[in-house]
Amino acid sequence: MDAQKVDLFIMTNGKFFESHQINVIRNRMLQVDESKWSILSTTQFKDPTTILIVSLLAGAFGIDRFMIGDTAMGIGKLITCGGFGIWTIVDWFLIQKATREKNIEKIQRFL
């Protein structure tokens, strides 16, 4: 894929991934052919900041986990009063990383 397009993608979507993964994504994107561009450029990723806000407000119900697609963990959180409140607090710190990992899983399907 064209280096200019790849850099444009990284600039707009860099915040959705872990910093150490960006280089890997860039290299992979440079290797794949041009036809993937339309899929990649239109893919929606979950914003870690939005999920963090949801986690702060409705983390006790597991809504944050449901939003990033972790349905099982969401149910676990919902039926245990947010993991007795402990899991809720732990997730305030972990949810951004979890969101970025979900985004990586999503982009790996196209690369």
């Binding site: 006790a60 009063c81 809720t88």
Partner: peptide, 9 residues
Amino acid sequence: PFRVCFLKQ
């Protein structure tokens, strides 16, 4: 008196 539920507390 100890309640585990964060929201209820």
